[in-house]
């Protein structure tokens, strides 16, 4: 199949994904409300920091941090783990396998296609919170704005690959989404979702920064609000790159092994 045809197929998948996301907009909105977790964390930590800063975070810093965390979470999340689990359990995956295009490309495009709608639904919430909290004081440099998309792509790929790996485990086990909950549990505290990782005890902060959780959220957030020195920025990108490559390879391997055993569950 030619490269041009491949591109057109991807575009068609994107259009379908966008149409599906629009059909599910109410569910999508409720889902976004569910992930307003950082906004409530914001209220909480801003409250705690009212009298004096917590570590090196003032009340204002918390506002910027958690609004950033909310937006970046919206832009980097996917749901392929639940789709895969369902499709493998019910055999719906068969329909995708029969099409002459890789099923993972299908998932990739439908997940990406929902992003614009997600952003459009989430932005007003973020703006409202910023206004309520008294404005935002961040001035990211042009360099930071330039590399932010890169960090976002990296974060998105990490999340997507992890979901693929865990989702593909559904080829062997019945409740892979529970494993994903385990991952999410660690993610909430280690990525900087519930509390900025730099507030963890000193030794832990250093260790946590090398884990995929931080690379998937904390790093782009800190980049966005301008808390990273050039050296930290470079290290951050290096760590993120390593995780993207390692997780993507692992995802490809799990998928291929899984496809071989597919069908034992009455597909």
């Amino acid at each position: 199949m030619s490269a041009r045809h491949q591109l057109r197929a991807l575009a068609a998948l994107w259009r379908l994904g966008f149409a599906e996301a629009s059909a599910y907009r109410v569910a999508l909105f409720v889902w976004i409300l569910t992930s307003t977790f950082p906004l409530i964390s914001l209220a909480l930590w801003a409250g705690i920091a009212r009298d004096a800063p917590v570590g090196d975070f003032t009340q204002r810093d918390f506002v910027a941090y958690f609004v950033g965390a909310f937006l970046i979470r919206q832009l980097t999340s996917s749901w392929v783990v639940w789709d895969l689990e369902r499709q493998i359990a019910t055999g719906e995956l068969s329909a995708l396998l029969l099409r002459p295009i890789h099923p993972l490309l299908h998932h990739l495009m439908t997940n990406l296609a929902a992003l614009p709608l997600r952003a459009a639904l989430a932005a007003p919430l973020a703006i409202a919170v910023l206004v309520a909290a008294g404005g935002l004081q961040i001035a990211p440099s042009s360099l930071e704005l330039l590399v932010l998309p890169l960090a976002l792509v990296g974060a998105w790929l990490i999340n997507f690959s992890v979901q693929l790996i865990i989702g593909s485990l559904a080829f062997w086990i019945t409740s892979s989404s529970a494993l994903y909950e385990l991952w999410m549990t660690c993610y909430v505290v280690l990525s900087g979702y519930a509390v900025p990782t730099s507030l963890l005890p000193a030794g832990m902060t250093t260790a946590v920064r090398y884990l995929p959780f931080h690379a998937a959220l904390g790093f782009p957030v800190e980049l966005l609000i301008g808390r990273l020195s050039p050296a930290e920025l470079l290290t951050g990108f290096a760590v993120q790159c390593c995780w993207v490559v390692a997780l993507a390879l692992a995802a490809g391997w799990t998928w291929r092994r899984g496809a071989r055993v597919y069908g034992a569950v009455g597909a």
């Binding site: 964390s41 705690i48 917590v54 570590g55 086990i173 019945t174 409740s175 529970a178 494993l179 909950e181 385990l182 549990t185 660690c186 909430v188 505290v189 519930a194 509390v195 507030l199 963890l200 005890p201």
Partner: peptide, 29 residues
């Protein structure tokens, strides 16, 4: 059998891990 691990143990784990933000606040304050 998965329920034991996926529901029981996971929930207790989540209860424990969820203490971290509280602990951070205590640590600083």
């Amino acid at each position: 059998r998965v329920g034991f691990w996926t529901e029981g143990v996971l929930a207790v784990f989540w209860s424990l891990v969820g203490i971290v933000p509280l602990w951070v606040a205590i640590d600083h304050r």
